[in-house]
Design a protein around this nucleic acid. Structure first.
Lengths: 342, 342
DNA sequence: GTGAAAGCGCTAACAT
DNA sequence: ATGTTAGCGCTTTCAC
């Protein structure tokens, strides 16, 4: 078969061209300082002249050393995951690893397929979001022996390496915060209710806080859309009419929170006096919304990413290291959309 | 050396376990329908029982068939690129390719390193953003013979495969649009002025339109920040004071445009009468900004991504196909922040 | 510090 | 439809 690819220059060619043996060139590629200055000079010139590109496929095949790491998140199009992935990439690539990235849009079946497909590349470590996976995923991971770190959600003991926050606790304290700042009746606005497990965790926390107040929960599931504002806005009045006395909303993310504030301003609903809103994620615009800026909960995503990257690296390096459980915590950022704590 | 990885089950093990030869198993892995139903049955059971995972490294090494494709964008944390990457991933993974992703934050040197590192994995195709690359990058790409698709910016003839828009034209027509809707003095707000080449292209288009009006250009470079709103807002009044009579702004993206509108509302500047703003990118919030929504320019990013993915696939499949130049175009979306065309 | 030789796990002729 | 064989490009002992 004809090929558009030029016949590749091989390590053997470099060896021939520079007058040393292939194994010396190989040694030079991996540890340049372990060959004599004279050989190094000749080899590097040959590489330059020939335009040699090392074949990592062959390297990993032969040497067995794993050259990639993998990360699977629900969505790279989501800014929070996008930034995290970018940071992890930076960290692991500095140690020479190729980062493999995939996203499954909250589908555990797609995640399973992606884990399978990544395993075929023999990665040195894998990072996954949350503790929920199909049985087959778990089984493959265990069989492979590839170190895995559970990201975002700290929960359960399936994986001894976990970096993230406890979303249940966030949902609980977010709701408590609204009650403590004077709300009587609090609803939970979310999107992708069934699929987004971490939002689901926050919802469970909300449920507990609501139950403690002897109230009935109110959930609003914003339909999926490519414009969260357009999808969310009409639901505010609808919900307030249906649920008389509603005066507080925990939003599953700042996109929904911002949409709610925009709609409230448009309809003349006084924030925070008639309606308090607490978001999640501290989006850039949240502090700039007017007339009321959006109170929110911030988790330290860069810290999660950095810790995850470093943990993958360490688990790969140190075979006795099983990983740690690190909860990076969160903070409530009070702004104009909630009342001051009394 | 001790290893945490379980000794892998190999194709030979599957063959032994199922009582057929390794090549039959290999055939089954690649074309399940080309082995007899009986063998297929035995093999699939053996795979199941043994938990066999195919070794793609060995596959690609032996077979020569390239199993991955690569895409390099300025930033995956940028929503527009994040979505595009996700779409490309979907498209190429459906044909069995592993998508390799990297981002370099507008650094051509980092891009060069990433191209080098991707080439080591022998990808079947590579997609890059824009026509600007280091000489070494170009040379490596040519030497390798790997098909490359130039994304986002359609320009030049280095690569016969290009999918995107003409950012120069966008900058030019955006500026013309403001003049045509009654603006007298138009400025250009951007960020990362030196690095973001596509924003630079739009700026060049702006320059042309301004020159045609016999005006002097006004550029404002928003300092880099993790919050574009915070960075942009203070610059509005400063610029309006310095440039008396300024009544139109072309914003390099909707983040800056939104920040400008928020600041204008806060300071009581009438939009669009005293100030018109035209953004770029049609962010979800743009249509929902109040009191004036943000007029913007929309490029069909999903179309760029999809076309790029398909073109990579086709270039890999059909050796005679050199790619096409496809300009997906753009549209101006008039909203509240610009006057109606007279 | 350097070279010779063996072999990693799979695929691709080719023969049957 | 299935088995036999050779070998992909590199790394890794092990001598020298």
């Amino acid at each position: 078969m004809r090929s558009r690819f030029k016949p590749a220059v091989k390590l053997d060619d470099v060896a021939a061209h520079s007058g040393v043996s292939p194994s010396t060139v190989s040694l030079y590629m991996r540890h340049p300082d372990k060959v004599s200055a004279k050989s190094a000079e000749k080899i590097s010139r040959a590489i330059e002249e020939l335009g040699y590109v090392r074949n990592k496929i062959a390297s990993q095949f032969t040497g067995g050393a794993r050259l990639s790491m993998a990360v699977i998140v629900p969505s790279v199009a989501n800014i929070i995951f996008g930034e995290a992935v970018q940071l992890i990439e930076k960290i692991v690539s500095e140690e020479g690893f190729q980062l493999l990235i995939a996203s499954h849009n909250h589908s555990l079946e797609k995640e399973e397929a992606q884990v399978r497909s990544f395993l075929e590349w023999s990665p040195a470590a894998i990072a996954l979001a949350g503790p929920e996976h199909t049985d087959a995923t778990i089984k493959m991971l265990q069989q492979s022996g590839v170190p895995v770190v559970q990201m975002w959600q700290v929960e359960g003991q399936r994986f001894p390496a976990q970096v993230g926050v406890d979303h249940f606790s966030i949902g609980y304290h977010a709701t408590r915060y609204l009650y403590e700042t004077g709300c009587q009746k609090v609803a939970f606005f979310t999107t992708r209710f069934e699929e987004d497990v971490r939002a689901g965790k926050r919802y469970t926390g909300y449920l507990k806080a609501v139950a403690e107040q002897d109230q009935l929960p109110i959930v609003v599931n914003v339909p999926q859309s490519d414009n969260i504002y357009t999808a969310t806005r009409p639901l505010l009045l609808k919900t307030m009419i249906k649920e008389r006395g509603l005066d507080g909303i925990v939003a599953s993310n700042d996109g929904i929170g911002a949409a709610l504030l925009i709609e409230a301003a448009d309809k003349g609903i006084a924030v925070p006096d008639k309606l308090s809103v607490l978001g999640f994620g501290d989006f850039p615009i949240s502090a700039h919304l007017a007339p009321a800026s959006l109170s929110t909960i911030n988790i330290n995503a860069p810290c999660i990413a950095e810790t995850t990257g470093k943990m993958m690296l360490r688990m790969n390096r140190d075979i006795d290291y099983q990983g740690d459980i690190v909860d990076v915590g969160y903070e409530i950022i009070p702004r104009g959309s909630t009342r001051l704590v009394i």
